[in-house]
Amino acid sequence: MKKNNIVLYAAIAGLALLWFVCSAYAQDEIKLLKNDSFIDRERPGAVFSHTLHADKAGIDCLACHHIYKNGENVWDDSAETECAECHKVESGGKTMPLMKAFHTNCKGCHEKENKGPLTCGECHPK
């Protein structure tokens, strides 16, 4: 009886650890971009792998992340990453509206590199 309990506790602890590791691992990697700023959404969000782009394809962080000072991109690891902090849904000034900022960034590079998706359905799968 006592032995059985230990096995049970060990199993529960093991499962909990597994869950913890899995969810921590999942949080590491962005897989779907679905920005809360879009209130009445038209599309289900966009598939995007941060690891694939930054690590496997070896793209410079500065190709996507930026903070402009005197026309120069001075972004570093500790700086703002959320596009919606600066790009608003409705363009209320000279910064690009949010959707256009995403599309220009993503599709612009895919077009230039001739790699990566360009049609709506490929990035916004149902």
């Binding site: 998706p117 049609t119 709506c120 359905g121 490929e122 799968p125 149902k126």
Partner: peptide
Amino acid sequence: MAYHQWMDAKTITI
């Protein structure tokens, strides 16, 4: 069909 992503989204869009 493209909007509802029937078959291959890219091919149908083309």
